[in-house]
Amino acid sequence: MLDVKNLGAWYGRAQILNGVSLSVGENEVVALMGRNGAGKSTTMKSIMGLVRHINGTIRYAEREVQGNTPHAICRLGMGYVPEDRRIFGDLTIEENLEVGRREPRPDAPEWTQEHLFELFPNLAERRKNLGKQLSGGEQQMLTIARTLMGNPKLVLLDEPSEGIAPVIVEQMARVIAELKREGLSVLISEQNLHFARIVSDRAFIIEKGEMRFEGSFADLDENPEISNTYLAV
């Protein structure tokens, strides 16, 4: 479904990614793990077309999408949930969802506002509130709901568990499971091995812009030195 080969990315003259390759299969949840600054977010942004200077190939839905604009990539059914949430603070919850709304697509589940309010009951109660009035956890829910309004087939979830309360993290795990049940594919970037293990099928580990590991969590458990080297603090 998504196949990234040899991805390089630059900010100005600084090279952030150096030959990153990864893949996400149909209805699969894949974790992209690594420390702060390892290149997780840049990988996500590059796939979404938000980094201007990249090379390598990004195949998605049977076509090469590198160099396309973010809106064109989004319209192919890829949804992006940014790490820093990027809620429209001066818009209400309903308006935030409206910005994300796109026509339903035949090959992906269709999400309506009401359906999403069932999945995220706290948002339903505050639907007329402005984005900036929400708590961090609520904003995190809203940013996922907003992306789902676009009826994506693949969701790029950038560090969904970062900086939110443990109870919300649990809720987040349930949401990701729900997405998988609905038939979506998810690429999730994560620092927390425990959380990644709960929600995802297999993992990639990235460090200093290069891929260091690819495999199942069982493989990872057999080689504890990998997670010690690249993940442990």
Partner: peptide, 24 residues
Amino acid sequence: TRWGVLVRAATQDREMVGALGVNQ
């Protein structure tokens, strides 16, 4: 109007509006 909501959203974060599928 939807257009107006998009304009207000773009005033705050136009890149995010683009990532949500709106042709900036």
